[in-house]
């Protein structure tokens, strides 16, 4: 195996992991704070891709779409949390999963109504087309951008949660609702905010993915299942866990895909099975 190939595979794995991370970390955060497993999370990723397509088509600017699409998706997410989820927090957790499943169906169908059934291609922005040569490997510039985007988001998120006052409140709410309420926090607002932010993050992933994968129906469910695997491996509610889980799944998908292409998915589930047997609550999760 040549060095160029190794570099290529490593970069592919990281680029893939970066996209996964953008989705998984929101899923994990929403679970940590709201105790809701959001089945619709992948649909927000898809929505990001489609909104991104429209913004690029109208304005011609990818960078504008990277800002506008997530903001719009986040607003929609917050609105949905306020109008539906808010009323059933006291129920057994499975009802919240079912509710978000219903929302996913509605949103998926809405996308079909608005954008039609065929896949929509998005061009990478100027300056990120073409390829560069790294250690002998010819590598698409755009994927390098994904690597950077994932890392920057991860680090920024970590700083936000660990070093800011709002981050502290979110972490408090994630650990204990009542304690957060005692701190004088409006828990309902924290929930809405976190839900909206998670949706926006997923949309960032969608916008960023579109030049590589196109915007297509069904991309939401594809990514949500992968993201579930990521958080199960990493542990729900843990950012570091999401990062580690994304890397593991990203590597399993790209390397597995290279060596035994048909079995790429099986490898991912094999890893998950092993983690569950030895640490049922995930690598970085806490035993409940």
């Amino acid at each position: 195996m040549s060095l160029a190939l190794v570099v290529d595979l490593i970069l592919n794995a990281i680029a893939q992991s970066a996209l996964l991370f953008l989705v998984a970390v929101g899923l994990s955060l929403v679970f940590g704070v709201l105790r809701v497993m959001n089945f619709a999370h992948g649909v927000f990723y898809m929505l990001g891709a489609y909104l991104g397509f429209t913004v690029v088509a109208r304005s011609g600017s990818f960078w504008l779409s990277l800002v506008l699409a997530p903001v719009a998706t986040g607003l929609l997410g917050g609105l949905l949390e306020r109008t539906t989820l808010r009323y059933i927090y006291r129920r057994p957790p499975i009802y919240q999963l079912l509710l978000t499943f219903g929302l996913a169906l509605v949103l998926e169908e809405l996308v079909r109504v608005v954008w039609g059934p065929s896949a929509l291609p998005v061009d990478p922005p100027a300056g990120l087309e073409g390829a560069v040569t790294i250690l002998g490997a010819v590598y698409p510039r755009y994927r390098l951008f994904l690597v950077v985007l994932g890392m920057v988001t991860g680090v920024a998120l970590w700083f936000f949660l660990q070093r800011t006052r709002v981050g502290l409140v979110i972490r408090a709410a994630a650990q204990n609702d009542e304690m957060a309420a005692c701190l004088g926090t409006d828990v309902a607002r924290v929930r809405t905010g976190v839900f909206a932010a998670a949706c926006a993050l997923a949309a960032v992933g969608g916008v960023a993915a579109a030049p590589m994968t196109t915007a297509y129906l069904g991309m939401g469910i594809g990514v949500i299942v992968d993201a579930f695997v990521v958080v199960v491996i990493g542990g729900l509610g843990s950012i570091v866990g999401s990062m580690a889980g994304s890397l593991i799944v990203g590597i399993a998908q790209t390397w597995g895909g290279f060596y035994f292409s048909e079995a790429a998915m099986a490898i991912m589930y094999l890893v998950m099975g092993l983690v569950l047997i030895f640490r049922p609550w995930g690598l970085f999760g806490e035993e409940e």
Binding site: P93, V225, F228, V229, Y269, M272, P280
Partner: peptide, 21 residues
Amino acid sequence: YISTRATGIYFAMLTLAFAQL
């Protein structure tokens, strides 16, 4: 056998993952 190692939401996700597989 594997999925019942987990409960609740984790169980739901595991069964989904196996089904997708």
